[in-house]
Nucleic acid binder design. Structure first.
Lengths: 149, 149
DNA sequence: CTTGATGCAAAGGATTTGCACAAAT
DNA sequence: ATTTGTGCAAATCCTTTGCATCAAG
Protein backbone atom coordinates (compact mmCIF):
# COMPACT_ATOMS: atom_id res chain seq x y z
CA UNK A 1 0.00 0.00 0.00
CA UNK A 2 2.91 2.37 0.58
CA UNK A 3 3.78 2.47 -3.09
CA UNK A 4 0.17 3.35 -3.83
CA UNK A 5 0.27 6.10 -1.25
CA UNK A 6 3.32 7.60 -2.86
CA UNK A 7 1.84 7.34 -6.34
CA UNK A 8 -1.15 9.33 -5.19
CA UNK A 9 1.15 11.74 -3.40
CA UNK A 10 3.09 12.24 -6.61
CA UNK A 11 -0.09 13.09 -8.48
CA UNK A 12 -1.00 15.72 -5.91
CA UNK A 13 2.52 17.10 -5.68
CA UNK A 14 2.47 17.46 -9.43
CA UNK A 15 -0.46 19.82 -9.05
CA UNK A 16 1.21 21.81 -6.29
CA UNK A 17 -0.87 20.48 -3.46
CA UNK A 18 0.93 20.26 -0.16
CA UNK A 19 1.12 16.84 1.40
CA UNK A 20 -0.07 17.50 4.89
CA UNK A 21 -0.51 14.78 7.45
CA UNK A 22 -4.29 15.20 7.23
CA UNK A 23 -4.28 14.51 3.52
CA UNK A 24 -1.96 11.54 3.89
CA UNK A 25 -4.23 10.10 6.56
CA UNK A 26 -7.38 10.48 4.46
CA UNK A 27 -5.64 8.94 1.47
CA UNK A 28 -4.74 5.96 3.66
CA UNK A 29 -8.37 5.61 4.73
CA UNK A 30 -9.51 5.27 1.15
CA UNK A 31 -6.68 2.91 0.26
CA UNK A 32 -7.45 0.75 3.26
CA UNK A 33 -11.19 0.55 2.83
CA UNK A 34 -13.24 -1.35 0.31
CA UNK A 35 -16.42 0.39 1.40
CA UNK A 36 -18.41 3.27 0.03
CA UNK A 37 -17.75 6.02 2.55
CA UNK A 38 -19.72 9.15 3.28
CA UNK A 39 -17.78 12.26 4.37
CA UNK A 40 -19.14 11.70 7.87
CA UNK A 41 -17.79 8.11 7.84
CA UNK A 42 -14.35 9.34 6.90
CA UNK A 43 -14.54 11.98 9.60
CA UNK A 44 -15.38 9.35 12.23
CA UNK A 45 -12.24 7.49 11.24
CA UNK A 46 -9.91 10.48 11.40
CA UNK A 47 -11.31 12.85 14.00
CA UNK A 48 -9.28 11.15 16.73
CA UNK A 49 -6.23 12.50 14.91
CA UNK A 50 -7.55 16.04 15.23
CA UNK A 51 -8.70 16.31 11.62
CA UNK A 52 -11.76 18.49 11.18
CA UNK A 53 -14.85 17.86 9.09
CA UNK A 54 -14.16 20.78 6.72
CA UNK A 55 -10.73 19.31 6.04
CA UNK A 56 -12.35 15.98 5.24
CA UNK A 57 -14.66 17.70 2.75
CA UNK A 58 -11.82 19.72 1.23
CA UNK A 59 -9.61 16.68 0.86
CA UNK A 60 -12.39 14.57 -0.62
CA UNK A 61 -12.94 17.34 -3.11
CA UNK A 62 -9.31 17.32 -4.18
CA UNK A 63 -9.19 13.53 -4.45
CA UNK A 64 -12.36 13.56 -6.50
CA UNK A 65 -11.18 16.23 -8.91
CA UNK A 66 -7.99 14.28 -9.45
CA UNK A 67 -9.80 11.02 -10.20
CA UNK A 68 -8.37 9.31 -7.17
CA UNK A 69 -11.76 8.64 -5.68
CA UNK A 70 -15.16 8.40 -7.28
CA UNK A 71 -18.40 10.01 -6.11
CA UNK A 72 -21.67 8.11 -6.15
CA UNK A 73 -24.96 9.79 -5.26
CA UNK A 74 -27.62 7.50 -3.95
CA UNK A 75 -30.78 9.04 -2.61
CA UNK A 76 -29.85 11.87 -0.30
CA UNK A 77 -26.33 10.66 0.35
CA UNK A 78 -23.03 10.99 -1.42
CA UNK A 79 -20.54 8.17 -1.14
CA UNK A 80 -16.90 7.98 -2.14
CA UNK A 81 -14.74 5.03 -3.04
CA UNK A 82 -11.26 4.56 -4.40
CA UNK A 83 -11.16 4.84 -8.17
CA UNK A 84 -7.49 4.76 -9.02
CA UNK A 85 -5.95 1.27 -8.65
CA UNK A 86 -9.39 -0.25 -8.37
CA UNK A 87 -9.20 -1.84 -11.81
CA UNK A 88 -12.94 -1.46 -12.11
CA UNK A 89 -13.24 1.48 -14.38
CA UNK A 90 -16.86 0.60 -15.06
CA UNK A 91 -18.95 -1.18 -12.50
CA UNK A 92 -22.36 -1.33 -10.94
CA UNK A 93 -23.21 -0.36 -7.39
CA UNK A 94 -25.69 -2.51 -5.57
CA UNK A 95 -27.47 -1.06 -2.58
CA UNK A 96 -29.38 -3.36 -0.29
CA UNK A 97 -32.54 -1.58 0.75
CA UNK A 98 -32.78 -3.74 3.86
CA UNK A 99 -29.36 -3.37 5.50
CA UNK A 100 -28.23 -0.28 3.59
CA UNK A 101 -24.92 -1.83 2.59
CA UNK A 102 -23.52 -0.84 -0.79
CA UNK A 103 -21.20 -3.07 -2.74
CA UNK A 104 -19.69 -3.20 -6.18
CA UNK A 105 -20.72 -5.60 -8.86
CA UNK A 106 -17.94 -6.05 -11.26
CA UNK A 107 -17.50 -8.65 -13.93
CA UNK A 108 -16.19 -8.79 -17.43
CA UNK A 109 -19.41 -9.65 -19.21
CA UNK A 110 -21.23 -6.89 -17.46
CA UNK A 111 -18.63 -4.32 -18.39
CA UNK A 112 -18.88 -5.40 -22.01
CA UNK A 113 -22.67 -5.15 -21.94
CA UNK A 114 -22.43 -1.66 -20.51
CA UNK A 115 -19.94 -0.62 -23.14
CA UNK A 116 -22.31 -1.97 -25.79
CA UNK A 117 -25.18 -0.01 -24.36
CA UNK A 118 -23.24 3.23 -24.19
CA UNK A 119 -21.98 2.94 -27.73
CA UNK A 120 -25.50 2.24 -28.93
CA UNK A 121 -26.73 5.30 -27.10
CA UNK A 122 -23.91 7.38 -28.57
CA UNK A 123 -24.81 6.49 -32.14
CA UNK A 124 -28.59 6.48 -31.72
CA UNK A 125 -28.83 9.73 -29.83
CA UNK A 126 -25.80 11.52 -31.29
CA UNK A 127 -24.42 12.21 -27.84
CA UNK A 128 -21.01 11.71 -26.36
CA UNK A 129 -20.97 9.56 -23.25
CA UNK A 130 -18.16 10.36 -20.86
CA UNK A 131 -19.25 8.65 -17.71
CA UNK A 132 -21.83 6.27 -16.39
CA UNK A 133 -23.48 5.57 -13.09
CA UNK A 134 -25.55 2.47 -12.51
CA UNK A 135 -27.08 1.60 -9.17
CA UNK A 136 -29.19 -1.46 -8.55
CA UNK A 137 -31.50 -1.54 -5.57
CA UNK A 138 -32.81 -4.66 -3.96
CA UNK A 139 -32.12 -7.22 -1.31
CA UNK A 140 -28.65 -8.66 -0.78
CA UNK A 141 -27.93 -12.33 -0.24
CA UNK A 142 -27.57 -12.00 3.54
CA UNK A 143 -30.84 -10.15 3.97
CA UNK A 144 -32.67 -12.52 1.63
CA UNK A 145 -31.71 -15.41 3.88
CA UNK A 146 -32.68 -13.57 7.05
CA UNK A 147 -36.15 -12.98 5.63
CA UNK A 148 -36.65 -16.64 4.85
CA UNK A 149 -35.72 -17.88 8.30
CA UNK B 1 -54.82 15.02 -19.61
CA UNK B 2 -57.97 15.40 -17.53
CA UNK B 3 -58.58 11.67 -17.48
CA UNK B 4 -55.03 11.19 -16.25
CA UNK B 5 -55.56 13.80 -13.57
CA UNK B 6 -58.62 11.97 -12.32
CA UNK B 7 -56.88 8.61 -12.40
CA UNK B 8 -54.17 9.97 -10.14
CA UNK B 9 -56.80 11.62 -7.99
CA UNK B 10 -58.54 8.27 -7.63
CA UNK B 11 -55.33 6.64 -6.46
CA UNK B 12 -54.85 9.29 -3.80
CA UNK B 13 -58.50 9.30 -2.75
CA UNK B 14 -58.22 5.54 -2.34
CA UNK B 15 -55.56 6.16 0.27
CA UNK B 16 -57.56 8.80 2.10
CA UNK B 17 -55.57 11.75 0.90
CA UNK B 18 -57.57 14.92 0.47
CA UNK B 19 -57.56 16.42 -2.96
CA UNK B 20 -56.68 19.98 -2.23
CA UNK B 21 -56.20 22.58 -4.90
CA UNK B 22 -52.46 22.61 -4.15
CA UNK B 23 -52.14 18.91 -4.82
CA UNK B 24 -54.20 19.11 -7.98
CA UNK B 25 -52.01 21.91 -9.23
CA UNK B 26 -48.77 20.05 -8.54
CA UNK B 27 -50.13 16.93 -10.22
CA UNK B 28 -50.93 19.06 -13.29
CA UNK B 29 -47.37 20.37 -13.31
CA UNK B 30 -45.93 16.87 -13.51
CA UNK B 31 -48.48 15.77 -16.12
CA UNK B 32 -47.74 18.82 -18.22
CA UNK B 33 -43.97 18.64 -18.07
CA UNK B 34 -41.60 16.25 -19.73
CA UNK B 35 -38.68 17.58 -17.74
CA UNK B 36 -36.84 16.38 -14.68
CA UNK B 37 -37.94 18.85 -12.04
CA UNK B 38 -36.30 19.75 -8.76
CA UNK B 39 -38.58 20.72 -5.84
CA UNK B 40 -37.43 24.28 -6.32
CA UNK B 41 -38.44 24.15 -10.01
CA UNK B 42 -41.93 22.97 -9.09
CA UNK B 43 -42.15 25.69 -6.48
CA UNK B 44 -41.26 28.35 -9.03
CA UNK B 45 -44.16 27.14 -11.17
CA UNK B 46 -46.75 27.17 -8.40
CA UNK B 47 -45.75 29.86 -5.94
CA UNK B 48 -47.82 32.44 -7.81
CA UNK B 49 -50.84 30.41 -6.74
CA UNK B 50 -49.86 30.82 -3.10
CA UNK B 51 -48.48 27.33 -2.69
CA UNK B 52 -45.60 27.11 -0.24
CA UNK B 53 -42.33 25.24 -0.56
CA UNK B 54 -43.13 22.84 2.32
CA UNK B 55 -46.34 21.91 0.53
CA UNK B 56 -44.37 21.21 -2.62
CA UNK B 57 -42.07 18.92 -0.67
CA UNK B 58 -44.95 17.20 1.09
CA UNK B 59 -46.85 16.65 -2.13
CA UNK B 60 -43.79 15.36 -3.96
CA UNK B 61 -43.32 12.91 -1.12
CA UNK B 62 -46.87 11.60 -1.47
CA UNK B 63 -46.61 11.31 -5.24
CA UNK B 64 -43.33 9.47 -4.90
CA UNK B 65 -44.58 7.02 -2.31
CA UNK B 66 -47.52 6.24 -4.55
CA UNK B 67 -45.38 5.59 -7.60
CA UNK B 68 -46.84 8.52 -9.50
CA UNK B 69 -43.51 10.23 -9.85
CA UNK B 70 -40.00 8.88 -9.76
CA UNK B 71 -37.02 10.28 -7.88
CA UNK B 72 -33.58 10.46 -9.48
CA UNK B 73 -30.52 11.61 -7.57
CA UNK B 74 -27.78 13.09 -9.68
CA UNK B 75 -24.86 14.69 -7.93
CA UNK B 76 -26.16 16.91 -5.17
CA UNK B 77 -29.62 17.30 -6.63
CA UNK B 78 -32.81 15.29 -6.56
CA UNK B 79 -35.07 15.38 -9.59
CA UNK B 80 -38.59 14.13 -10.10
CA UNK B 81 -40.42 13.05 -13.22
CA UNK B 82 -43.75 11.43 -13.99
CA UNK B 83 -43.60 7.67 -13.67
CA UNK B 84 -47.20 6.56 -14.07
CA UNK B 85 -48.41 6.81 -17.71
CA UNK B 86 -44.86 7.27 -18.88
CA UNK B 87 -44.66 3.82 -20.41
CA UNK B 88 -40.96 3.81 -19.67
CA UNK B 89 -40.73 1.57 -16.67
CA UNK B 90 -37.02 1.19 -17.25
CA UNK B 91 -34.98 3.87 -18.89
CA UNK B 92 -31.70 5.68 -18.79
CA UNK B 93 -31.21 9.29 -17.80
CA UNK B 94 -28.70 11.28 -19.76
CA UNK B 95 -27.25 14.41 -18.21
CA UNK B 96 -25.37 16.83 -20.39
CA UNK B 97 -22.47 18.14 -18.37
CA UNK B 98 -22.28 21.23 -20.54
CA UNK B 99 -25.84 22.60 -20.47
CA UNK B 100 -27.05 20.64 -17.47
CA UNK B 101 -30.15 19.35 -19.26
CA UNK B 102 -31.36 15.88 -18.35
CA UNK B 103 -33.34 13.75 -20.72
CA UNK B 104 -34.57 10.20 -20.93
CA UNK B 105 -33.13 7.59 -23.19
CA UNK B 106 -35.68 4.98 -23.84
CA UNK B 107 -35.71 2.27 -26.41
CA UNK B 108 -36.71 -1.32 -26.62
CA UNK B 109 -33.31 -2.84 -27.21
CA UNK B 110 -31.84 -0.95 -24.32
CA UNK B 111 -34.55 -2.06 -21.95
CA UNK B 112 -33.95 -5.64 -22.96
CA UNK B 113 -30.21 -5.28 -22.40
CA UNK B 114 -30.83 -3.85 -18.98
CA UNK B 115 -33.18 -6.68 -18.07
CA UNK B 116 -30.52 -9.13 -19.20
CA UNK B 117 -27.93 -7.46 -17.04
CA UNK B 118 -30.13 -7.42 -13.97
CA UNK B 119 -31.09 -11.07 -14.30
CA UNK B 120 -27.43 -11.97 -14.70
CA UNK B 121 -26.61 -10.02 -11.59
CA UNK B 122 -29.44 -11.72 -9.71
CA UNK B 123 -28.20 -15.21 -10.49
CA UNK B 124 -24.46 -14.50 -10.22
CA UNK B 125 -24.65 -12.56 -6.99
CA UNK B 126 -27.68 -14.23 -5.41
CA UNK B 127 -29.38 -10.90 -4.88
CA UNK B 128 -32.85 -9.70 -5.65
CA UNK B 129 -32.97 -6.61 -7.85
CA UNK B 130 -36.01 -4.43 -7.31
CA UNK B 131 -35.06 -1.22 -8.96
CA UNK B 132 -32.40 0.28 -11.16
CA UNK B 133 -30.95 3.69 -11.79
CA UNK B 134 -28.71 4.42 -14.72
CA UNK B 135 -27.37 7.84 -15.52
CA UNK B 136 -25.08 8.61 -18.41
CA UNK B 137 -23.01 11.75 -18.35
CA UNK B 138 -21.58 13.44 -21.35
CA UNK B 139 -22.28 16.02 -24.02
CA UNK B 140 -25.65 16.24 -25.72
CA UNK B 141 -26.11 16.72 -29.46
CA UNK B 142 -26.79 20.45 -29.21
CA UNK B 143 -23.72 21.15 -27.10
CA UNK B 144 -21.52 18.95 -29.29
CA UNK B 145 -22.42 21.10 -32.28
CA UNK B 146 -21.85 24.33 -30.42
CA UNK B 147 -18.34 23.19 -29.52
CA UNK B 148 -17.47 22.43 -33.12
CA UNK B 149 -18.55 25.81 -34.45
C1' DC C 1 -68.26 18.36 12.32
C1' DT C 2 -63.89 15.80 11.95
C1' DT C 3 -59.83 14.85 9.92
C1' DG C 4 -56.22 15.97 7.38
C1' DA C 5 -53.57 19.84 4.83
C1' DT C 6 -51.44 24.35 4.77
C1' DG C 7 -48.44 28.38 5.63
C1' DC C 8 -45.23 30.23 8.46
C1' DA C 9 -41.27 30.23 11.10
C1' DA C 10 -38.04 27.61 12.94
C1' DA C 11 -35.18 23.53 13.19
C1' DG C 12 -32.09 20.07 11.01
C1' DG C 13 -28.59 18.07 8.43
C1' DA C 14 -25.09 18.30 5.01
C1' DT C 15 -21.79 21.11 2.87
C1' DT C 16 -19.19 25.37 2.19
C1' DT C 17 -16.71 29.61 3.44
C1' DG C 18 -14.07 33.61 5.88
C1' DC C 19 -10.46 34.27 8.53
C1' DA C 20 -6.56 34.17 11.66
C1' DC C 21 -3.17 30.82 12.67
C1' DA C 22 -0.18 26.76 11.50
C1' DA C 23 2.39 23.75 8.55
C1' DA C 24 4.69 22.51 4.24
C1' DT C 25 7.84 23.65 0.72
C1' DA D 1 9.97 33.34 3.52
C1' DT D 2 6.19 32.24 0.89
C1' DT D 3 2.47 29.74 -0.16
C1' DT D 4 -1.01 26.72 0.96
C1' DG D 5 -3.77 24.16 4.45
C1' DT D 6 -6.16 24.05 8.84
C1' DG D 7 -9.55 24.53 12.61
C1' DC D 8 -13.12 27.09 14.20
C1' DA D 9 -17.35 29.37 13.85
C1' DA D 10 -20.59 30.97 11.04
C1' DA D 11 -23.05 30.91 6.78
C1' DT D 12 -25.63 28.45 3.15
C1' DC D 13 -28.44 25.35 0.99
C1' DC D 14 -31.84 21.90 0.91
C1' DT D 15 -35.29 19.57 3.42
C1' DT D 16 -38.24 18.64 7.33
C1' DT D 17 -41.18 19.72 11.35
C1' DG D 18 -44.28 22.03 15.09
C1' DC D 19 -48.08 24.39 15.45
C1' DA D 20 -52.09 27.30 14.92
C1' DT D 21 -55.30 27.85 11.30
C1' DC D 22 -57.91 26.45 7.18
C1' DA D 23 -60.17 23.49 3.80
C1' DA D 24 -61.98 18.95 2.22
C1' DG D 25 -64.82 15.19 3.02
Amino acid sequence: MNSKVSMIEDILRGKNFKLTSSRKEIIRIFLGSDKHLKPEDVYELVKAKGISLPTVYRTIDILKRNQIIEEISIGKHRYYELKIFSGKKLHIHFKCDVCGEIFDIDDQKLVMDLIDITSNVESEYKVEVEDLLMVLHGVCEKCKNKTII
